[in-house]
């Protein structure tokens, strides 16, 4: 009996140890390497990263139209509770004005805060993890040039057990892939640029894919759409299954103006996405279109049945 209790205790301790080891937040850049990142960087290139990454969609202060006022406060509803985007303005106390480039790199590439805590993946670091470190540095130069906004955003409002950040280490172990995107030499330069813009910055897949009950993207249905996790409507399938009849120019046009080939105008948070993508160089929108149009057809979750008397 004594021996059994001892073995169980040992197993528990071992389990805890493995949990602790698996969930340890890991940095992308050490403070030492980070020092070199503080010089250089380009504001204009950083602005492109900012628009391609869609930072303003969540971090701009709600209820005003200036996309460079990044006071946070936007509430993102989800099955796990409500996430509130933080202040990422250059304010030294309430924003990220005191951050080093290394801090931004660890946040974007590993989902780890300067204090070494895990961020929730509502912040799409699962996508940003593939970004180039030079782009993070350029983005930091741009962010530092934007106005400081006073006031911290509200805290997240989540349900237990999602309140335990350490547990996110396990989630990351399952779903965070930190390998850099490899160039595909057989594809065109535009396709490769589009691949990078969509998969490392634009994070299209984060909304346009269904997720499993613990919030991991279902790989076989990546880009195949699904019910809107924010609660209303249905996110379209953007693989060849959904965009089959669209030309590359149609996709690029939507990213520029928000209009579909039928002159419907996109709604919900996609309208905010269009504000980002319409600020990109046209060549980048064309590149995104080229990559998106190359996605193989995948069947997504079924749409809820339509009501019989539907007109539109």
């Amino acid at each position: 009996m004594k021996r059994l209790v001892f073995s169980l205790a040992l197993l528990c301790a071992l389990g805890l140890g493995v949990f602790w080891w698996l969930t340890a937040p890991g940095a992308a850049v050490s403070a030492q390497d980070g020092a070199a990142l503080e010089s250089g960087g380009d504001r204009a290139r950083g602005e492109i990263v900012f628009n391609a990454g869609g930072c303003a969609s969540c971090h701009m202060t709600p209820g005003q139209s200036e996309r460079t006022v990044l006071g946070g406060g936007f509430a993102l509803t989800s099955p796990f509770g409500t996430f509130v985007a933080p202040n990422i303005s250059s304010h030294p106390r309430d924003g990220i004005g005191a951050w080093k480039v290394a801090d931004l790199a660890n946040a974007m590439l590993r989902g780890v805060s300067p204090e070494g805590a895990h961020y929730y993946p509502a912040f799409p670091y699962t996508t940003y993890a593939h970004a180039k470190i030079e782009d993070v540095r350029d983005l930091m130069v741009y962010l530092r040039s934007l106005p400081a906004v006073e006031g911290k955003a509200a805290s997240h409002d989540l349900q237990f057990p999602f309140t335990i950040r350490r547990g996110l280490g396990l989630w990351k172990w399952l779903y965070l892939d930190t390998t850099p995107l490899k160039p595909e030499p057989v594809q065109s330069e535009a396709w490769n640029r589009g691949h990078y813009l969509v998969e490392a910055l634009g994070h299209c897949a984060e909304c346009h894919s269904p997720r499993n009950p613990i919030g991991g993207i279902i790989a076989a249905q990546r880009f195949a759409g699904g019910p809107d996790p924010e609660g209303h409507g249905f996110v379209p399938n953007i693989t060849a299954k959904g965009l089959g009849a669209w030309s590359r120019a149609d996709v690029s046009e939507l990213l520029a103006t928000g209009f579909t080939p039928d002159y419907d105008s996109v709604g919900g948070s996609m309208a905010a996405v269009v504000k980002n993508t319409s600020s990109l160089p046209k060549a980048d929108r064309d590149a995104m279109a080229e990559y998106l149009k190359s996605l193989p057809a995948r069947e997504g979750p079924p749409r809820p049945a339509k009501q019989a008397s539907k007109v539109d």
Binding site: G233, F234, V266, G267, G268
Partner: peptide, 20 residues
């Protein structure tokens, strides 16, 4: 003309759900 047409997206952002 594009300025007038921008109203579509401006209103859909808050008042129309995503759909396909």
């Amino acid at each position: 003309f594009p300025g007038v047409a921008r109203a579509c997206g401006g209103c859909h952002e808050n008042y129309r759900a995503k759909k396909n």
